[in-house]
Design a binder for these strands. Sequence first.
RNA 1: GCGGCCGUGGCGAAGUGGUUAACGCACCGGAUUGUGGCUCCGGCAUUCGAGGGUUCAAGUCCCUUCGGUCGCCCCA
Length: 418
Amino acid sequence: MQVLRGMVDILPAEARRWQWIEAVFRETASRFGYGEIRTPLLEHAELYERSVGDTTDIVQKEMYVFDDRGGRTVALRPEGTAGVVRAFVEHKLYGRETLPLKLFYMGPMFRYERPQSGRQRQFHQFGVEALGSDDPFLDAEIISLAWFFLQSIGLDTVELHLGSIGCPGCRLRYRERLIRHLLPHRDELCEDCRRRLDTNPLRILDCKIDGDKPFVRSAPTILDDLCDDCKTHFTQVQTALDALGVPYTIDPHLARGLDYYTKTVFEFIDTRIGAKSTVLAGGRYNGLVKELGGPDLPGIGFAAGVERLMLLLEKKAVPSGAAAAFDVVVSGFGTGQDVAWKLLFALREAGVRAEWSFDQKKLKAVLRDADRAGARYVVLVGDDETVRGEVTLKDLKSGEQTTFSQETLVERLKTLLS
RNA sequence: GCGGCCGUGGCGAAGUGGUUAACGCACCGGAUUGUGGCUCCGGCAUUCGAGGGUUCAAGUCCCUUCGGUCGCCCCA
């Protein structure tokens, strides 16, 4: 048997790194005033069809959908925002909590894709959502939180791309203008882009084949078509970021792939991991709460791909935090076994990280293993010690060893290790 | 979903169709019967991702399948 395709085991050595990066994210989120929310991994498939958009690739070809035993059509969550907004609406949090309600989450997401590095079928995201405010300072807060988090874990090579895709009105106007611009050149487009002209003309702008063609480069950008409200909002976000010294580049071609985005969109990109270079991305979704049956409240958030962050960190030799699992190894042999066994537990009760020497190894092996594991001390109780009511304590670092009464062991070790 | 490359012990890696599948690291044992790190000596793949086929002979060739990886699509 082996793991399912696209699924990955996180082994102990790797898990330590995960704990570290999760701790940094939790700390960052809480410092910015975001509280944790945990939502189910399984939801009605319809939730994603309505939020992410039923024409998107995520819904059309990447969702893990199946009927449960009760005949409900359910899906493993492909992203985090929909579930959070669903919970917000379902529990009417907009009536109970001060707005904006600021939330973070972390956990596995599922997309049925062809795996490659930085892309798995089960992957993990750190995410943040703020619901109930359209204040541009909130956009800037979220972006600065993302930036600060990436700085905190040592990723200083990522670039922030910032854009706005306006409100539905702006987008409609722009779409028509873009099609008008590109239509005369239809025959010069690649096969994919001729299709995109009808389905998603915005994508033509960053097509690998057509993106550099003169008539594409001269295409109007959505930033020119923003309405006054969207334009002002976007300017204010920039001003707020400038004030903090958060560096960004305006990217008029940023087109998020999920249907729910409005106004501000942003992406943190690192070019060192090949084609899949986006490590964190997000934006506003002012229509989503209403779309899911709630009041007409705005929202904004982002999600970061943990595996992609890890990939980048590997190339950077990160603080591994490979601390020893324990400080003391206790070994009893001969008549000393029972005493040693009780001492081990007493040490643990007293807060000492102590380990038993399993499998009746020879003293030589006990010391070798303790040394390898990074333990500082070894407690030995053999026949000699037992008759005198003593224990032998060996300091692996200095090589020195002393013998003293069993009763004083716990106190001595606590002192030595403090 | 489409296309390219790859798959040999715990890890890295040699191996032009021919006998017992190099080597390095790691690991285990001994030299040292209650004392680690160093050194020396010895051990460690009935088997080459799995299944089938071609052949007198297959890790080496063919097919299928599973997995990884890279690119496309798309995305975190």
